[in-house]
Design a protein around this nucleic acid. Structure first.
Lengths: 152, 152
DNA sequence: CTATATGCAACATATGAAGTTACATGAGAC
DNA sequence: GTCTCATGTAACTTCATATGTTGCATATAG
């Protein structure tokens, strides 16, 4: 099953934005992500609605962070994407008439629910500020290259 | 994202088989599952290789359980399907050169891994025998109708 | 007015589960 | 042996959805 990489992608974008000031155009970000500007706008749209980022049109426009990175968790970002399905598996039929299938669903739902809850919980424990700090550590003493690390 | 329902489906089949003796043809099972015989054979193939079920061709042929239901867990069944991806999300790039993306991956991988481990653990706690017992309870005092509950 | 940016709809592409068709193979019934 | 019933399997179609692309409307700085 093809895996949804929007969360991974949007976090990548946000952290790059956290390393440098100034607005970033969708095109700049797209080059860094090796994708298309429209894809960037698409995954950023939800974050804009929740006020995590702002966008401005025209000359000197682009994207800017608009939140306290210490107050936004990965779970918040996930929610901003529209809370897509977390698990690749699901029940064949949600409300089956067959009692046997009801038993199967009950058992699987329990396991599925626990796993989803744990994942959401873990995502809720990590803030963008924590991730950004981790980034700076990894970048270490070398000059902050920001988006230029991608060849952009 | 379309969710993989093979585990749900194959469990449904196995539990129906546990309710009644006798071989079941792929066609009978397919009718109960409202699907195609080939789909049944496909999801059963892995279980046959691991010895959980046996199949016989020709007259009087079909599928039979061939294991101790108390010793096979949902995790075993999942493995028999080829251990398909559990999570609908994943990292954009597995081995990124970008340090920022490495930080993102590290954080997400941790959460993903924990959730997967919990799910597998939960699946490992439930045996087919336990599920089958739950089925019998749900069927209660009414006559065991088995596959006929599906109109088959 | 022009250049540059986002906003967004519409369409194309790719992937993989699910469904379908066709045919080969094997096992009993006769 | 031959017929019928069943699985085994490859190849194809269908469907959903993330991703990629194009085109154009809209807004803003100069």
């Amino acid at each position: 099953m093809r895996r949804d990489s929007r969360l991974s992608g949007v976090l990548h974008v946000l952290l790059h934005m956290a390393q440098q000031p100034g607005p970033f155009t969708s095109e700049t970000l797209a080059k860094a992500m090796d994708t298309n500007p429209v894809v960037i706008r698409r995954i950023m749209a939800g974050l804009r609605e929740l006020g995590y980022v702002r966008s401005e049109k025209g000359h000197g426009g682009g994207w800017r962070l608009a939140c306290d990175l210490a107050k936004v968790t990965l779970r918040d970002v996930y929610a901003a994407l529209g809370s897509p399905a977390l698990l690749a598996m699901g029940n064949r039929t949600e409300s089956p008439g067959c009692l046997v299938e009801q038993a199967v669903n009950a058992a699987l739902d329990q396991a599925f629910h626990d796993a989803e809850a744990l994942l959401l919980s873990r995502l809720g424990e990590v803030t963008l500020a924590m991730l950004s700090e981790d980034c700076r550590k990894r970048l270490g003493s070398r000059k902050h290259q920001g988006l230029r690390a991608h060849g952009a």
